[in-house]
Design a protein around this nucleic acid. Structure first.
Length: 616
RNA sequence: GGGGACGUGGUCUAGGCUGGACAAGGACACCGGAUUGUCACUCCGGAGAUCGCGGGUUCGAAUCCCGUCGUCCCCGCCA
């Protein structure tokens, strides 16, 4: 039986031949086990003696001849075994080393990048055998339940699509780091074992053995640390950092997730930051995904976004703005609308291009949906050759004509009309806008539509008439709104901004308060008195007392960013080892009960005894 | 905390409404055999499931009911 002959010096392929990802600088020594990578062999290699190593992707045993698709990170190449008995013993996903000669194929496979060639094996060594697989390593993920994929994540991640996602994430991080490095940012690590930070979510707690009865909290974000770093003279800080929030999960929410966190000193308006971040975005899209993003990004104030799109994260890949037609209906004779206006509401029109084909039944369904979303009701008009509308019997034709003109409705379009208080009406119609656009195929799914949303309110109404921070308690108010803090705090605007991409909130930030007295005022408005403030974040307030420059920053949801670029539907597809919706990890079996001895050491007892959780 | 969907050999699923020849069918994977140009190789043969778990209804439950656990999606919650 032929054995693998290990040549002493098999020259490695020189640099620059391959354009495949990931290209990397090869040190000769690195290739002790292989001279080439599977996916990189081409017709130019015909006649070369090569040594490969990889996984047996697929086997075709024809008796006297056996084909093996050999796979490594670079791709797949067909290996041909002639009269090599060992080849019959191979199984899928065995790890093998093969030495042989590159030959031109009798029948090329156009489906495969390496399809013109194959490797005629002269020797084979099995490096590791694989047990029967729970699922195949191919890109059709649909044939496997997610729990099974997570339990055998080490197999799942071998799939090209998952490899691509991991690589995309890496490239995104690399391009972020290189860009920010060139802009003078310094990556500084902040503690994971820390105090509760005031983000408003539930904390993950870690019991402290040295002081029984006390707990560290895992950070919901490094917010206070990054501000302290600014006060510490780190003028430009960033960090790609894990954050933890103990809340229920969603397709786009994991209990631990990654932020690109950054902060700049000597910043009192967001303008320089916007310019920098737009360049960062454009750079990252170009480097990581070969997408050109035009800059500058459109900007909308929070008030504009709510009025025109009914959302603080509008999807700008399509139009369909909410159009105010209140004035047209104020005295038009339709009492329902007139009363809504008299009560301080508005009449809002939404043009659905091509919506003229909605049947009466569909319109009823849309109205039900609108009401379920919080709109008081819904009416409509259609522009065909004539304008038709149930409102025609209440208002003059001129009013409906006015609606058509203002919304720009073309022949064949539908205009939905609803009236009510803006706080309820706008989000309802905005959500309707989003749903109808998707249902009707009006969204350009290949487009990238970033936008800045600015000037959020500083506060929102909390439970029992309390004030809550819209962003967080360290957000600076607009100077001209400082008087409002006393008179009408809910009207005060914050120096606060979100970066929205295709209707998804990608990043959120603000100019921070850098004066101790203003900070104290905000905290007291939030119902946090001096004593509590001192107790919870006295360390931070102290930092503001010793010369903190004006500063501001932003934090990106990095997982979401990768998810969008990867075109994935859930965060789990872009995180190597994610949690299920129930917060568990099928791979490791976490969370799991711990030994009684560990609890004792920590001074903890578990009510009702530790729940038993069988090993996975 | 609430709502919805799902749970059947290793994997994915059919069957479930209308309980009875279902000691559960198929595909892929696996095992044995054949096979010298395949590429989702093919052909022949084989093994493998007390239908998530517990209880109930019934002469009889994969199927109906209740509970429970798990997975997924949504609301609440959460930047």
């Amino acid at each position: 039986m032929p054995q693998l002959r290990l040549s002493k010096h098999l020259p490695c392929r020189p640099l620059g031949v391959s354009g495949r990802f990931p290209p990397y600088n090869r040190l000769g020594k690195e290739f002790a086990m292989r001279s080439d990578r599977c996916g990189e062999l081409t017709a130019q290699d015909v006649g070369r003696r090569v040594r490969l190593a990889g996984w047996v992707h697929r086997l075709r045993d024809l008796g006297g001849i056996t084909f093996v698709d050999l796979r490594d990170a670079s791709g797949i190449v067909q290996v041909l075994f002639r009269d090599l008995d060992q080849a019959h013993q191979l199984s899928r996903e065995d790890v093998v080393q093969v030495e042989g000669t590159v030959a031109r194929r009798e029948a090329p496979n156009p489906e495969l990048p390496t399809g013109e060639v194959e490797v005629e094996a002269e020797g084979l060594r099995v490096l590791a055998q694989a047990a029967p697989l729970p699922f195949a390593v191919d890109d059709d993920v649909s044939g496997t339940g997610e729990e099974t994929r997570l339990k055998y994540r080490f197999i799942d991640l071998r799939r090209p699509r998952m490899q691509r996602n991991l690589a995309l994430r890496h490239r995104l991080c690399m391009s972020v780091r290189s860009f920010l490095d060139r802009q003078g940012f310094v990556e500084v690590e902040t503690p994971v074992l820390t105090r509760s930070t005031p983000e408003g979510a539930r904390d993950f707690l870690v019991p402290c053995r040295l002081v029984p009865g006390t707990f560290y909290a895992l950070p919901q974000s490094p917010q206070l640390f990054k501000q302290i770093l600014i006060a510490s003279g780190v003028e430009r800080y960033f960090q790609i950092v894990r954050c933890f929030r103990d809340e229920d999960l969603r397709a786009d929410r994991q209990p631990e997730f990654t932020q690109l966190d950054l902060e700049m000193g000597f910043l009192d308006t967001p303008e320089p930051l916007f310019a920098l971040l737009e360049e960062l975005m454009a750079h990252v899209f170009r480097e990581a995904a070969k997408i050109e993003l035009p800059t500058p990004f459109p900007r909308l104030t929070y008030a504009e976004a709510m009025a025109s799109y009914g959302s603080d994260k509008p999807d700008l890949r399509f139009g369909m703005k909410l159009v105010d037609v209140s004035d047209l209906f104020a005295d038009a004779g339709f009492r329902v609308f007139a009363r809504a206006i008299a009560d301080g509401g508005r009449v809002c029109a939404l043009c659905v291009p091509g919506g003229g084909d909605f049947s009466r039944g569909e319109l009823n369904r849309v109205e039900e949906e609108a009401v379920a979303l919080g709109a008081p009701g819904l009416s409509w008009l259609k522009r065909a050759e004539e304008i038709t509308s149930p409102l025609a019997k209440f208002v003059g034709e001129g009013v409906l004509q006015g609606v058509v003109e203002r919304t720009g409705a073309q022949e064949g379009d539908l205009v939905l009309l609803s009236a009510g208080p803006p706080a309820a009406l706008n989000p309802a119609v905005g959500e309707l806008r989003r749903r109808l656009a998707h249902e009707r195929g009006l969204v350009d799914t290949g487009a990238w539509a970033p936008a800045w949303i600015t000037d959020f309110p500083l506060f929102k109404a909390g439970e029992g008439g309390r004030l809550d921070s819209e962003h967080h308690p360290f957000t600076a108010p607009h100077e001209e709104d400082l008087p409002l803090l006393e008179e009408d705090p809910l009207r005060a605007r914050a120096k606060c901004y979100d970066l929205v991409l295709n209707g998804v909130e990608l990043a959120s930030g603000s100019i921070r308060i850098h004066r101790r007295d203003v900070q104290q005022q905000i905290l007291s408005l939030l119902g946090i008195d001096q004593e509590e403030a001192e107790r919870r974040f006295g360390f931070f307030l102290r930092a503001l007392e010793y010369g903190a420059p004006p500063h501001g920053g932003i934090a990106f949801g990095l997982d979401r960013w990768v998810m969008m670029l990867a075109g994935e539907r859930t965060l789990r597809e872009v995180i190597a080892f994610p949690k299920t919706a129930g917060g568990s990890c099928p791979l490791t079996g976490a969370p799991a009960p711990v030994d009684e001895a560990q609890l004792t050491e920590l001074g903890l007892t578990v009510e009702g005894g530790a729940s038993t959780n069988p090993d996975p």
